[in-house]
Design a protein around this nucleic acid. Structure first.
Length: 348
DNA sequence: TAACCGTGGCC
DNA sequence: TGGCCAAGGTT
């Protein structure tokens, strides 16, 4: 680490001492962080904003304060708490990992990158982040914020997606040997609050004099943005099949989109073949509404149909189908898409 | 490697 | 309004 690189980390740490965000998984005043909480927070924060995560994190820790408690839970409980948060494989992987940590590591998170990487749901970023933040061990942490901050500090013009290796090398150069956790979080807080994607607040930046992008007057153009692929449209149909005060719902397949979550029977949009849904095609239905829902990689237009299910059609239901009380749907694990559809039907 | 995997907020 | 973006991982 050269003198200038040490100046950068010193300035960032000093800034962090006075400007760190107060977040529920952070401890201050010399207390050691709880690796379990850091793990849960890091998984929840994958591609998810801090403000969205906070209430989910608090509920999660309240319900399962330790690995030991988590590994005694049912997957269905974890999915229920996770419903609405998105990227549901994270919940499945957390649950699975809790068993591994229980059986292989005596309920304590492993503290080496190679062992952390063996846990499902932990990749290169999360392993390094847990090393640094939970254990204060030196690791090179490169997340979305840090990619942008480092690109600007060293005037790296390439789009971040195409420049991982170079960004990693420069991040490595400025990563100190002490207070690694604080340093990593200082970069993240800086990226989140000051060195923002658009209109960075350079006038508040503690390392403005060390920033090569600023020196070159390129802070608004670095890193370069890459054009994204065009988003596709899909059409689907959801069925509100009613029998008195009950509605037919089912548990989705345990793989792919919205895996293992509860849903209204729906077809035509998720590239899945589910034999259990064949019976829908024979039902007498009436189109009552339509909603639009944005996924990351496609836009969904979902037609909503109402089916009045007659008492004498009491044929046997497929596996994992149940008649749910319309007034007690809270106990199920619906993704936001389904919550939107249900709200639309019940309000209309 | 590029597609897949959710959702909410911002401008 | 719609595209962008957020403490990415898996296949």
């Amino acid at each position: 680490m050269t003198k200038n690189q040490k100046i950068i980390s010193d300035k960032l740490l000093k800034w962090y001492d006075h400007n760190a965000r107060l977040l529920p998984w952070r401890l201050f005043g010399g207390s050691k962080p709880d690796p379990y909480k850091i793990w849960i927070s890091e998984i929840m924060l994958q591609q998810t904003t801090v403000q969205t995560v906070i209430p989910y994190f608090k509920l999660f820790i309240q319900k399962w304060p330790t690995v030991d408690q988590l590994c005694k839970s049912d997957l269905s409980e974890v999915l229920h708490l996770w419903s609405g948060l998105g990227y549901y494989s994270r919940a499945r992987n957390l649950h699975l990992s809790s068993f591994l940590i229980n059986s292989k590591y005596n309920n304590s998170l492993p503290s080496t990158e190679s062992e952390l990487l063996k846990l499902p749901g932990i990749g290169s970023y999360t392993a390094a982040a847990i090393m640094a933040i939970a254990f204060n061990k030196r690791a090179v942490v490169v997340d979305g914020n840090i990619k942008r901050v480092v690109s600007r500090l060293f005037s790296l013009e390439k789009p971040v997606k195409e420049n991982y290796r170079e960004i990693w090398d420069f991040t490595n150069l400025i990563t100190p040997n002490i207070r690694v956790g604080d340093f990593v979080q200082s970069l993240m807080d800086l990226g989140s609050e000051i060195c923002t994607p658009s209109r960075p607040k350079c006038y508040q930046c503690p390392v403005i004099n060390n920033c090569q992008a600023k020196t070159n007057k390129k802070e608004n153009f670095i890193p370069l943005k890459k054009r994204k692929l065009e988003k596709n449209f899909r059409n689907g149909a959801s069925f509100f099949i009613r029998k008195g005060q009950k509605v037919l719902i089912y548990k989705r397949l345990d793989r792919g989109l919205l895996a293992s979550l509860d849903a209204l029977p729906s077809i035509g949009w998720d590239n899945q073949v589910d034999q259990r849904l064949e019976f829908i095609k024979k039902l007498e239905k009436k189109k009552i509404s339509r909603i639009k829902h944005e996924f990351t990689h496609f836009t969904l237009n979902m037609d909503i149909y109402l089916v009045e299910y007659l008492e004498n059609e009491n044929s046997k239901l497929p596996k994992d189908f149940i008649w749910a009380d319309i007034n007690n749907l809270k106990k199920f694990s619906f993704p936001t898409l389904m919550q939107k559809i249900l709200k639309k039907i019940i309000n209309d």
